[in-house]
Design a protein around this nucleic acid. Structure first.
Lengths: 251, 251
DNA sequence: CTCATTCCATGATCTACATCAGTTAAGTGC
DNA sequence: GCACTTAACTGATGTAGATCATGGAATGAG
């Protein structure tokens, strides 16, 4: 393993805390649920957002904080997590530019039910819940898109419940790698590289296990030639084999 | 335990496969997301629904079936579940009159991702996805309500993911009983009776454990005076103690 | 470069819970 | 009422995976 490359991730470490105006407009037009808006509407919407930069591990809001904003990731990666008194945190999702988080229900939650944290150097666009709600009320087709996305997330959450209830750790990690591959994968020389920092702790926190067990399972995957992995990175080589493991049930 | 009462549930075992027209209109007006409609709109919506009766354990649709309808529970209880190849099924939810299920995303899923089954004698109102979508497109405020409900369900699913990842079985069952209590609870002589048939298998399938373990945990709860339970029923006596257990983390 | 920190790997134990198995009790139909 | 069926209880045993503990490798700071 002398030739193992180090840190193959290509994370843009731009110094800018703020993202450029160009990027900002581009991002908003890319957000799935604003896709249908006219340029004029888009400009109006854009003026309601303000941007904010975060360093890695900086917290955007804490679980339990009063809800004030809805956010869109402009650049970087954002972690959504839930804490436990014991310290065993659960990583709900890693968000990529164009995805939204925070509150968006019309009735409005009182407090956030998860913590949002910058995973990498991040730029986030925020809008007050009132402004966002006004947009929703004026643009029915936007609401339909938000509903679609929320339904898809509910769907994904149910899959996760299912897996935590019925699959052994190995299967859950295999499935997670496939999901991350679909979301962050960049085909490369050897396998599909998951383009986001991903520590063993992260894998553990997304699959309901410990970092030690995640480490063992991933070591085995590597020995079996299913993945290549190093410090904070993973590349998937054999998608099909992982799929088999994710589906496998011991009769 | 000589005085243990038998089957304290008060399930209406009406013979009717169909629910009356009165009930039907009443149900639709009670459905949270139709609550804002005018009487005229409500009548029009009503005409788009057709009703269907199901006997206990009858299947309304299977996971994997092509999506054709969105449903509202009119009477009885409906189980939403996911199957595993191994046979270890997961019970996602038990629905009560006024709740909807099936597909409702605007883009439309191709197939159902869960199986819906009558839990008791049930009457269900169905509407074609096209008709429902037309309603959504004409009534923005209805979409907002659907979004709210979907957000709340996503929220609940995330709680479940969290618990499966971080809580021991005892805690998950304690929490489940509290949730069921809030949803189906009827205060009675001794404790709050959960007004739905609830076998140990059901508890197990909702908490990611086995019926044996569910049985052991619930026996212990009963010995400790937290609940009263029998064949297919549970009454909660000490809500506060269950809350403590649900929150407890080992260090 | 060197040191300090963080992340990863892996062995040795321990335990919560699954699994297997047999008994008891609550409903149900005749 | 009695026989039959299904659900619940409970003991014995096995095991996946947590926990504890240690050493090594990649990265970052000075």
């Amino acid at each position: 393993m002398t030739g193992r490359r180090k840190s193959p991730l290509e994370i843009d470490v731009t110094e800018a805390h703020m993202c450029s105006v160009n990027l900002r407009l581009h991002i908003l037009s890319q957000v799935p649920f604003f896709a249908g808006l006219s340029q004029a509407d888009l400009d109006r919407v854009n003026s309601l957002f303000n941007e904010q930069g975060y360093a890695p591990h900086e917290t955007i809001y804490f679980s339990g904080d009063a809800v004030k904003h809805m956010f869109v990731v402009a650049d970087g990666r954002v972690r959504l997590m839930r804490h436990s008194p014991s310290g065993k945190d659960v990583l709900l999702d890693i968000l990529t530019p164009g995805e939204f988080f925070g509150s968006f229900s019309a009735q409005g939650d009182e407090v956030y039910h998860e913590t949002a944290q910058a995973h990498t150097q991040t730029c986030v666009l925020g809008i007050s819940v009132n402004d966002f709600r006004a947009i929703l009320e004026k643009n029915p087709q936007v609401v339909l898109r938000v509903l679609d996305i929320t339904s898809a997330r509910l769907q994904a959450a149910n899959v996760r419940v299912h897996q935590l209830s019925a699959l052994p750790v190995e299967g859950r990690i295999a499935y997670l790698l496939l999901v991350l591959c679909a979301k962050f994968g960049k085909p490369g020389n050897d396998g599909v590289l998951i383009q986001t920092p991903l520590a063993r702790d992260d894998v553990a926190a997304m699959t309901g296990t410990t970092s030690e067990t995640a480490s063992r399972v991933m070591s085995q995957f590597q020995k079996d030639g299913l993945i290549r992995t190093g410090r904070q990175w993973v590349a998937v080589i054999d998608l099909f084999a992982l799929e088999e493991i994710a589906k496998a049930e011991i009769s």
